[in-house]
Simulated assay, not measured.
Amino acid sequence: MSHSDWAAAIGRDTPVLVTGAAGFIGYHLSERLLAAGIPVVGLDNLNAYYDPRLKEARRDRLLDRPGFTFERVDLADREGLAGVFERHGPRRVVHLAAQAGVRHSLTHPHDYVDANITGFLNILEACRHREATHLVYASSSSVYGGNAKLPFDVEDSVDHPVSLYAATKKANELMAHSYSHLFGLPATGLRFFTVYGPWGRPDMAIQIFTKALYEGRPIRLFNHGRMERDFTYVDDIVEGVVRLIPRAPAPDPGFDRQAPDPATSWAPHRVFNIGNHRREQLLDLVAMLEELTGRTAIRELVEMQPGDVEATFADVSALEREVGFAPDTPLREGLARFVDWYRSFNGIG
């Protein structure tokens, strides 16, 4: 699907609502849609989970773009969210806003219920009552939980979460499916795998490691560095999203209720992995960052943290069949772009 194909299929008559537009992925997605001439209503509450100045900087860049409208609304504000739908009439919604972070969920569990459960219910209700034609929402690779079979496939069971964050993302998939069944709401869940790149979240490992390298502080490597992640460059994530926005799922006529496939349904609901379909050693990541920054890491090897998993690895064959695309940015190439941005944003010569 070419640039003009997906943009034409989305259309320019009504805006796409992007929740979490001042967040990492939401910012990049909004930029991509605006560059294609598609109007965007960006919703964000600009909370202080991490430095709001980074969120404000992303938002301000979007406000400089024609076609962008910003709404500061919290997902838990049912009336405020309904007002956004009433004022702007979006038919396609990309829901990326959430309380993120596995480790934060160990100490602040209520934040996850407020944003990821109550907030998601409010999104579903607004989409239902405004007759949205497609809800695309962020799930997470964390739903695979304690699964040891690699790569993770959308046909795998995801019934054993190892963090509350993962449980809320699994709950989102179940909630969306129920609305697809009950009200015919077409919905697509996207399981993102360890997204990184310019304008990234400061609580993610790549940002934390890079900051520590430039400041000469130790890098904590959990499970004594024996971790593998499927690092996915943010532009690849966005490419997958924009190709899926105009492709609202239809009921699967071949769905077998006696042998149910978790990846599909009799309802208009689907889930896809979006990952780089590669396993990268955490120690190799650190070595690449050392090379790119010209600094030597001080490695601090520590035990695995509760809620973590040893490895993630995406099977993206379902995504490739659906939209003819699979992420392919090599890790070193994506890291080089990230480090260039990091140095510029933080004034490092």
Rank of each mutant, 00 (worst) to 15 (best):
N45W: 10
R78F: 12
R78D: 13
D153H: 06
G145E: 10
R103F: 04
D74C: 08
R87P: 13
H160I: 07
Y112G: 04
R72H: 03
Y49A: 12
E155W: 00
D156C: 02
D44V: 09
F152D: 03
A115I: 05
R72L: 03
L164M: 01
S139K: 04
R128N: 00
S142I: 01
Y49T: 14
K149M: 05
R58H: 14
G101R: 08
V40F: 12
V102N: 03
I38M: 08
Q99T: 12
A138C: 05
F152G: 02
F68D: 11
A115D: 12
E79N: 10
E131R: 10
T133W: 03
G67D: 14
Q99N: 11
D153G: 01
D153K: 03
D153E: 13
V113C: 06
P161V: 14
C127G: 08
L54P: 13
R87E: 10
R128H: 00
N45F: 03
G89H: 15
G67H: 14
V94F: 03
H129M: 02
H129R: 12
R53D: 15
F68H: 13
V102K: 03
R92M: 14
L124E: 00
R130L: 00
L81H: 09
D60A: 10
V143Q: 03
V102S: 10
R130T: 09
E79G: 12
A115V: 09
V41P: 13
D159A: 15
G146P: 01
H134A: 08
K149H: 10
R58P: 10
T118H: 11
S140W: 01
A48D: 14
V102T: 11
E56R: 15
V143R: 00
D77F: 09
D77R: 10
R103Q: 12
E71K: 05
V154D: 15
R128D: 00
V73C: 14
G42Y: 11
S142N: 08
A132W: 04
A76G: 15
S140R: 02
H95C: 05
H95R: 08
I38A: 09
Y112M: 04
H108M: 08
A100M: 03
N116W: 08
A48V: 06
L46K: 10
R59S: 04
V162D: 06
H108L: 07
E155F: 01
P151C: 11
R59M: 12
V40N: 11
